[in-house]
Nucleic acid binder design. Sequence first.
DNA 1: GTGAAAGCGCTAACAT
DNA 2: ATGTTAGCGCTTTCAC
Lengths: 343, 343
Amino acid sequence: MTKPPNDTRRPLTLRDVSEASGVSEMTVSRVLRNRGDVSATTRSRVLEAAKQLGYVPNKIAGALASQRVNLVGVIIPSLGNLVFPEVLAGISDGLEGSGLQPVVGVTDYSPEKEESVLYEMLSWRPSGVIIAGLEHSEAARAMLINAGIPVVEIMDADGEGVDSVVGISHRRAGLQMAEAIVTAGYKRIGFLGSKMPEDHRARKRFEGFKEGLAAAGLSIADEEFYGGGSALAKGREMTQTILTRSPDLDFLYYSNDMIGAGGMLWCLDTGYDVPNQIGMAGFNGLRLLDGFSRRLATMDSCRREIGLKAAEIIAGVPHSGMIGGEKLVLEPVLQMGDTIRKV
Amino acid sequence: MTKPPNDTRRPLTLRDVSEASGVSEMTVSRVLRNRGDVSATTRSRVLEAAKQLGYVPNKIAGALASQRVNLVGVIIPSLGNLVFPEVLAGISDGLEGSGLQPVVGVTDYSPEKEESVLYEMLSWRPSGVIIAGLEHSEAARAMLINAGIPVVEIMDADGEGVDSVVGISHRRAGLQMAEAIVTAGYKRIGFLGSKMPEDHRARKRFEGFKEGLAAAGLSIADEEFYGGGSALAKGREMTQTILTRSPDLDFLYYSNDMIGAGGMLWCLDTGYDVPNQIGMAGFNGLRLLDGFSRRLATMDSCRREIGLKAAEIIAGVPHSGMIGGEKLVLEPVLQMGDTIRKV
DNA sequence: GTGAAAGCGCTAACAT
DNA sequence: ATGTTAGCGCTTTCAC
């Protein structure tokens, strides 16, 4: 394979391949897309020329002409949180074989940024959009409705979607965890979470959690919130802080596994008897934490499957018909781990 | 903000805005792009009409006409490994304000997939490509050279690049770690890593490491490799395995911090005296691990800065001139942590 | 099985 | 400050 002789710095076009092979542009196009009937000889002659020249088709022109773009916009709040790359992995799997490619946009949990990222994406006329959460600005919702393409809102099932929805009920997840804690006999419960008002899923879990406690006549005894930084380190710090302030707490509910793991490390280092003296639980079911000596109680957020299903919905929608409106609510499984005492 | 009255399911065009506002398509285009002089009145009339209709420009057509695409292709091996999202964050920062947007492609460490992802990306005629590593297939190299756009190969500086290069010398990183270990007086050294033949950076670190040991008349006493799974858990398992097989090892060098942390947890749980009985070190400088009770010795891989600089190179290249060929070698800092004994 | 013509929705370049 | 014309590189459609 020698270096293609593209001396002129002008990108190669179909016409170049056409001239090099002595075949019309149209037929070259057919060969390169495996469309229509082309004789074996013409076919191989074209492929030879294309390879020889190092021709790379121009999808921009192709997309404009065909009104077809094999891209799926994926909009998520962050890449720093382990959870989202896993959703992406699921999406990537779900798109496998469909010819569609994900294009990722990150919002940093900012509604304004979400709006601009969405606008940017839609301007490339993707075949579909997968977007985290159900809460969007008015303008963003309008764009999603108006885009005329399948939209899947993922990760959250507590609310109304624009089109299709794939997620779990975070409210119910919080509620179920509260029930498990109450059943185990814990009474003085602390909550530790992030102070991101725009993390609606964390907020809903917290609300469901409080609701579950309330049903048993209990409420949050103390709470602690954090901003940026290494989640593990923050979990450690916050745990020390809250237990110093409220030494009588017998359970700590963390809004995610990373801070929960940090808290667990601190409790074990400090000599707490987990789960008898103090119980603890997180959220997400992060496999990352499998290597710890104790397994933190948690609840799987089904993120890989969510990505997979969302992608399948996009990939499965026929090019014209677009029915949509599916709502798929997955059921997370409570994993008791080693940090909730047996009843 | 009422729902835009786009009754016909046909996407809106510039012409629609033109008709709605009574301004020529060309002037509408100018307004929407803030290009050229437009009177304040026409301007506001156009913006009003565009907003009213919910018009989203078609970048495909725009790109085709202007031969300008504000996209930067970013090709990385994986999203599951913490390291790459951090590089992405750096790229995202470096692109800030340039008007360029990253489009991410994942190769799963497969040269074939890298080739197809690259082909796919180039077919969108991006303004530049940032790609992990210096090792590519012949065809991939040819595409990169032939693309006629700035290319930045990142993360590795041990070798020749196609155009610009931003990275660290993994060989030197391994070598320096070996020197630190030798200096601390360790003699019986084990290596634990992944068995990914395509992870050239890990391979180079290992080679540099062995070279560093050799310079002191030492060599690897035992080694252990792993495949998939939770890295923390694997680090734990492998550490048990290698120390059972070779109980006389006094140092363990891990190819990354996650397996190193797993190993550290196991050693501490098992009652090893770290760092006196056994020392250990990883690689990457993961801040994620800040919450552990001991800090693992490690070496910063400068991944955020690598992303930042690579993006700046792409963003800084003038639209035509394309000089390129920069090579930026960053210097990782050795962090001794708590797992190498003081001399 | 192959080719010619028209045009996708925009913007560069040139009017005015 | 605004409008007109001619394409960008491909694919659709229709002809042969």
